[in-house]
Nucleic acid binder design. Structure first.
Lengths: 198, 198
DNA sequence: CGGCTACTATGACCACTGTCATAGCCGGTG
DNA sequence: CACCGGCTATGACAGTGGTCATAGTAGCCG
């Protein structure tokens, strides 16, 4: 699932994201991150002199970039790209995971927002940046599909909002129902946004 | 904002919800809850022999009931109830708060889900129950407005998902943009769901 | 060889948490 | 008055957290 043989630094960032996804920021310990990454504990203070805050911020940034990069893959997987199809793929990544390995993990950016939005300004900004680097490719993809420029941003926000909320509900219920619901209900609306002059 | 003169027990549950909303479950201490509720620390073990878990679960339940009860108020505030109007009111509760007192707080149910879904089964179930007691009144309201029965549940889920996600993004960005966006984009879709035979 | 840099290894510190044990208050009732 | 239940008050405990200090290793350069 993840490249386990990268530098230890990268592994720790990745592990931090994984653990934050599962337990939230506050419940994730530094020692735990090092152990999960099979990295020496002493490396934490070496690679992340900024402490836990720096590690969390990098994990959040990593998650944002990951989500943004997935968009291109989703598009490539679609025979004929449509907004609704893209959203269905975004949702499917979650339903696939939940059905395959269970409901252990949520979105790390959401976790960081919930846990740090008020207490840690830098992390809050990292989360906002992550949402932006995620929404950017989505909006561009919508534009490429023929959605008018003035609506791409709003629809991208709607897609990400619905997805995040559905992930939350799905995790609480341990059921992918909410995810499937938003995909089904939102698909037609998204497809209807492509201007017919194409 | 809240009835400050209820029993100490109720005040503690309410304070717990407030603090969880702000900092997440893990970062909210029991002593902090007692202090915030102006309640004696010794009362914690008296009223909540189940410890923190019980307190958190009750706070989540309280939040779910609160959200469910708000629905009736929103409907009463609308001259002519429509699905899009109801959703706009639900969103407006958040934009009003954020513009009035800042972006300190999110949804306590979301916070509990993020922090406890994997670690504490009972809290996860409490969160699922809270979402259900919230979605119920929403779905019933949609039905009363003429939405076909077979779609009310799905649309309620869509509304709550989008709202939760938008709250998350708004908090990260410290901007109500996402909230306004989902309200604007989803309104027409919701209104279009009322069957015309009415 | 010495010296330097990158990284690793541990142990200690201090702040704090949830929980428990114990004791005290205080208003009723008999 | 004695008694007792509901509630409060505090101190202690054991555990865990992030962080710092210090020392060690490995490898390259000169």
């Amino acid at each position: 699932m993840a490249p386990s043989d990268r530098g230890p630094r990268e592994r720790m960032v990745f592990s931090a994201a994984q653990l934050i996804r599962r337990d939230g920021v506050a419940s994730t310990g530094m020692r735990e991150v090092a152990a999960h990454a099979a990295a020496p504990r002493g490396s934490l203070q070496h690679y992340f002199p900024g402490g836990k805050e720096q590690l969390v911020n990098e994990a959040v940034g990593w998650a944002g970039r990951y989500a943004g990069n997935r968009v291109a893959r989703f598009l490539a997987a679609l025979p004929e790209p449509t907004p609704g199809g893209l959203f269905a793929e975004m949702v499917r990544q979650w339903t696939d995971e939940y059905e395959a390995v269970g409901f252990a993990g949520g979105c790390p950016v959401a976790a960081a927002t919930v846990d740090c939005a008020e207490s840690t300004a830098a992390t809050r900004e990292a989360a906002a940046a992550a949402f932006a680097t995620w929404a950017g490719p989505v909006a561009r993809a919508l534009a490429d599909m023929g959605v008018p420029e003035e609506r791409t941003g709003a629809l991208a926000t709607l897609m990400i909002s619905s997805l995040e909320g559905a992930v939350l509900i799905a995790r609480a219920e341990r059921d992918v129902r909410a995810l499937n619901t938003v995909a089904r209900e939102l698909g037609p609306l998204l497809d209807a946004a492509v201007s017919k002059a194409d």
